[in-house]
């Protein structure tokens, strides 16, 4: 499997190895990865992308495992992307989401891939959008995207997922944290996991009263479900709720609008990537320390220097 055309054919047939290699190319930001994504883009657009977010420890990975088993029992093919944080010190990462997904991932109808966030904020990795195109084109019916789970600044998932599922657990003081993070506004489905523990009803009540305050989406009232992912309780109801939201989007003709927003996000991200590259080149340029000194002594303003550097880089491009 050397060239992107081979890989594209393999992906369209749903072959695991081709999918895996295609995702690597996209993650590495290689040019053939971009060609690949472009080639596959027309074949995508059929899968429901489901984002799973929530604070660490609420059981997101276990929930993904249990939900995958449920979706498989309904004959659906499931793609999974799980994002873990990269170390800000070494740039390395330990990706441990597979540990809790062992029951579901061996199935031929399931493909699971771990990504490191590689410094990208927002709870996802930069490659997520391209990766979604690959899994969609590979014919998966449902694609589950598990975010970093920092519990804050996870809002990006909303732009990539058709349905965002916010997971909480009782007794973690999550309700207040969740409001602070603005995470309640992004959920179309709420899950109170570990529902065999004390305090479930309290957590459900606080989500309900919070949702009552934010009546911006009267067309869709987010359901609140109780689950015990550990033993699979509540998975049928969860799968139904996710399907209902998908039906809602389809029936109301909302998918077009969603795709527009997704494409806007894609362009914004491409612009941010260019910005990052310019920063990298400026930093490694000979005049960098000169500029730092000027700003440090108050001779110039940072914004002025930034504009100057931007103009220089632009001319060289």
């Amino acid at each position: 499997m050397k060239d992107w055309d081979d890989i594209a054919q393999g992906i369209l047939k749903g072959q695991k190895r081709a999918i895996a290699r295609g995702l690597t190319w996209i993650e590495q930001g290689r040019n053939d990865g971009k060609q690949l994504a472009q080639k596959l883009f027309p074949h995508a657009g059929n899968a429901q992308v489901i984002g799973i977010t929530g604070a660490p420890g609420v059981g997101k990975s276990t929930l993904v495992n249990a939900l995958t088993l449920q979706l498989r029992s309904q004959g659906l093919r499931v793609g999974i992307l799980a994002v873990d944080p990269s170390s800000p010190f070494s740039g390395g990462a330990i990706l441990g989401d597979r540990i809790r997904m062992q029951d579901s991932v061996m199935d031929a109808g399931v493909y699971m891939r771990s990504f490191a966030s590689r410094g990208h904020l927002g709870g996802l990795s930069r490659a997520t959008f391209g990766a979604l195109t690959v899994l969609d084109a590979a014919g998966f019916d449902k694609i589950l995207v598990e975010t970093v789970g920092a519990g804050q600044s996870e809002v990006e998932i909303m732009q990539l997922a058709h349905t965002t599922m916010v997971v909480l657990a009782p007794g973690m003081g999550d309700d207040i944290q969740a409001i602070k993070a603005g995470i309640l506004e992004i959920g179309q489905v709420f899950v109170v996991n570990k529902a065999d523990r004390d305090g479930v009803d309290h957590t459900v009540r606080s989500i309900r009263s919070m949702l009552a305050l934010a009546s911006e989406h009267p067309a869709w009232m987010p359901p609140i479900l109780k689950t015990v992912a550990e033993d699979g309780r509540g998975m049928k109801e969860l799968a139904d709720a996710l399907e209902n939201h998908w039906q809602h989007l389809t029936d109301k003709g909302l998918l077009e609008r969603f795709r527009w927003g997704q494409t806007e996000h894609l362009i914004e991200q491409a612009m941010a990537d260019i910005g990052d590259r310019l920063v990298g080149r400026a930093r490694s340029g000979q005049e960098w320390s000169h500029w730092v000194a000027e700003v440090g002594t108050g001779t110039r303003e940072a914004e002025h220097v930034a504009e100057e550097l931007w103009r220089q880089e632009w001319r060289e491009d």
Partner: peptide, 8 residues
Amino acid sequence: GMEVVYTG
């Protein structure tokens, strides 16, 4: 600086 998948 490597990315390590651990499966348990």
